[in-house]
C-alpha cells in the first residue's frame, strides 16, 4: 500500500431539495409548494489510498450511494472538497467557493473514476463487446482495432470472452454486471467505485460477480465498494467504514470493525447479518 491518496473527501455536505408542487385543484384549495430539504451527507471525511480497497457499510438511506456519486459529480456537493488524484472533479475553486467547471473538463476527469452501478446500466443497443469498446472509441478516441483488442482483454478478465457478441438482453444479471465491470476497467481508471454491485442479482449469481471483484482487487486496483455482503466485505477490505445518517460512524480494519465494533450502529448491522460479535462496551 502506498501513501499516495487517490480520493480524498473533506467535510463533504450534501442536501437534496425536493420540491413538491401540488396539482391545480389542491392549489385552488390553498395548498402551497412544499420544499423539503434532506441533509444526506453531514460532513464526511474519507481517504482512499492507492491500491486500497475501502468498503462502505451502512443501512439503506445512510448516504452511501450519494457519497460515491459525489466523487464523480453525478451529484453536486454543497460544501467541503473531494479531490481525485489531487483535482476537484466538476468544480474550480474561486475565492474559496466551488464553481462548476466546463463539462468537457469534468468529462475528462471522470475517466479517472470507473463506476459500477447496482442496475448494471449496460448500453442496451450494444453487444457485450460493443459496450466495452464504445467508451474506448468515443471517449479515448482509440482506433477500432486497438479498442477491440483492449475490450477483448478486459472481457477475458471477467471471464466473458465467449459472450462477447451477446446483447444485454441475452445475458444473465451476473454476466451483465461483469460486462459493466470490464467496461469500466478498460478505461484504466485510478479508482473503481462499486455501488451495491450484487444487490440486484439473484442469489445464485452473486458469487461470480464477487469473485471477479476479488480478482481485480488482488491485482492492486484501488476501489471503493458499497455492499451489504458482510463476508465479502471482511475478506476484501483493507478499510471498512460504516455510515449512518450522513456521517461516518466507524472506520477501521475488518478485524477492528467486525470483532471490536465501537458504534452501536455497526453492531446492529453485524448482528442483522448473522455475524455474532460482542456488543460494543459503550457508544
Amino acid at each position: 500500500m502506498s501513501d499516495e491518496v487517490i480520493v480524498s473527501a473533506r467535510d463533504v455536505h450534501k442536501t437534496f431539495t425536493v420540491t413538491k408542487t401540488p396539482g391545480i385543484f389542491s392549489r385552488l384549495r390553498g395548498a402551497r409548494t412544499e420544499i423539503n430539504r434532506i441533509e444526506v451527507l453531514k460532513g464526511v471525511d474519507l481517504d482512499v489510498h492507492k491500491g486500497q480497497t475501502v468498503v462502505i457499510l451502512g443501512s439503506s438511506g445512510s448516504g452511501k450511494s450519494t457519497l460515491l456519486r459525489c466523487m464523480n459529480k453525478l451529484e453536486t456537493i454543497d460544501s467541503g472538497r473531494i479531490l481525485v488524484n489531487g483535482h476537484l472533479v466538476g468544480y474550480e475553486e474561486r475565492d474559496g467557493k466551488l464553481v462548476d467547471e466546463k463539462a468537457s473538463v469534468t468529462a475528462q476527469k471522470r475517466t479517472d473514476l470507473g463506476m459500477v452501478f447496482q442496475q448494471f446500466n449496460l448500453f442496451l443497443n450494444k453487444t457485450a463487446l460493443g459496450n466495452v469498446m464504445a467508451p474506448l472509441q468515443d471517449v479515448k478516441k482509440m482506433p477500432r482495432e486497438a479498442a477491440e483488442e483492449l475490450a477483448l482483454q478486459n472481457l477475458k478478465r471477467v471471464g466473458l470472452l465467449d459472450r462477447k457478441d451477446n446483447y444485454p438482453s441475452k445475458l444473465s444479471g451476473g454476466q451483465k454486471q461483469r460486462v459493466a465491470i470490464a467496461r469500466a476497467l478498460a478505461m484504466d481508471p485510478s479508482v473503481m467505485l462499486f455501488d451495491e454491485p450484487t444487490s440486484a442479482l439473484d442469489p445464485e449469481l452473486v458469487e461470480e460477480v464477487l469473485a471477479v471483484i476479488k480478482a481485480i482487487a488482488a491485482q492492486g486496483t484501488t476501489m471503493v465498494i458499497v455492499t451489504h455482503e458482510m463476508q465479502f466485505a471482511r475478506d476484501i477490505a483493507d478499510v471498512i467504514v460504516v455510515m449512518d445518517q450522513g456521517i461516518i460512524v466507524e472506520k477501521g480494519t475488518p478485524d477492528e470493525v467486525f470483532f471490536r465494533p465501537k458504534h452501536a450502529k455497526t453492531y446492529a448491522l453485524l448482528k442483522r447479518s448473522g455475524l455474532a460479535v460482542e456488543p460494543p462496551a459503550a457508544s
Binding site: 464523480n72 468537457s104 468529462a107 475528462q108 471522470r110 473514476l113 470507473g114 463506476m115 471517449v139 467496461r183
Partner: peptide
Amino acid sequence: GQTEAALSLGYT
C-alpha cells in the same frame, strides 16, 4: 442510468 453510465465513463 444509461446517461449516468456514459457520464461516468467520461462522455460529455
